[in-house]
Computed example of a mutant assay.
Amino acid sequence: MPFLIAAVVLVGVVCALNLVLTFAVIRRLREHSAKLADQRPGGPELLAKGSRIPEIVATGLDGEDAPRRPALIGFFDTECKACPAQVPHFLRLVEDAGYDRSQVLAVVSGPYDDSYAQAMGSAATVVAEPFNGPVVTEFSVTAFPSFYLVGEDGRVRSGAVTVLGLGVPVIA
């Protein structure tokens, strides 16, 4: 009989310990879920659909009024591991949509690296700037890469952290 009592007490202690650990895991999962919700594409790091693009781009990077505004804008960082993989998709979108070089802006942030200018120079206006340069700051870019499709009215039609996430291009 004493063995039976010891076994029941042992099972009770193990069950109580299991319950405490389960509650700890559930609490940790809720914390991680809340953090991940803020990092989803289309979240707070991108301009909202329908918002106006910053004036620095709407009037042309040289400050003069531009007869056109970019229809596609891509933000890349030279230290970003995901950015080089998006370049072929970016170039394919430019080709498939039929954009000319004046309608496409590629902003490369970070330490100077001419590989982006070489890869995209024929298809886009490439702007190289230091980390947190003027264009990146105006767009409040916090995630690299980031992409925007812009309508003729200068409003964001679509924004995403991958080219494929942009959806159907706006033909300008």
Results as ranks from 00 to 15, higher is better:
Ala85Met: 10
Ala34Arg: 15
Gly151Thr: 00
Ala119Pro: 02
Pro88Cys: 12
Leu166Pro: 06
Asp113Gly: 04
Ser140Pro: 00
Gly159Cys: 04
Ala24Ile: 09
Ile53Asn: 01
Glu129Val: 04
Val168Asn: 11
Val127Ala: 07
Thr137Lys: 15
Pro88Met: 12
Asp114Ala: 12
Ala119Tyr: 00
Thr142Leu: 14
Pro84Tyr: 01
Glu95Cys: 04
Gly159Ser: 15
Gly42His: 07
Phe90Arg: 03
Phe139Leu: 06
Ile73Lys: 03
Val14Trp: 12
Leu164Ile: 08
Thr125Gln: 13
Gln118Ile: 08
Thr162Arg: 15
Ser122Arg: 15
Gly133Lys: 08
Leu105Gln: 03
Leu105Ser: 02
Ala124Arg: 07
Ala85Ser: 14
Ile171Leu: 14
Gly50Val: 02
Arg155His: 07
Ala34Val: 11
Pro88Asn: 09
Val136Ala: 14
Val150Arg: 04
Pro67Tyr: 04
Gly98Lys: 07
His32Ile: 10
Gln118Asp: 11
Val11Leu: 15
Phe23Gly: 10
Glu129Thr: 04
Thr78Ile: 10
Ala16Gly: 14
Pro145Ile: 01
Arg155Phe: 01
Met120Arg: 08
Val20Pro: 05
Ala58Pro: 01
Gly63Gln: 09
Leu91Gln: 11
Glu64Asn: 11
Gln103Lys: 14
Gly43Trp: 01
Asp153Lys: 08
Ser146Phe: 02
Leu19Arg: 11
Pro145Gly: 06
Asp62Glu: 10
Ala7Ile: 08
His89Tyr: 12
Leu166Lys: 04
Arg101Thr: 05
Ser33Asp: 14
Met1Phe: 05
Ile171Val: 15
Glu79Ile: 04
Arg28Tyr: 06
Arg157His: 06
Thr125Pro: 00
Cys15Arg: 14
Tyr116Val: 05
His32Gly: 03
Leu47Ile: 02
Glu95Pro: 03
Pro44Tyr: 09
Gly167Ala: 08
Cys15Met: 14
Asp65Glu: 11
Gly60His: 03
Asp96Val: 04
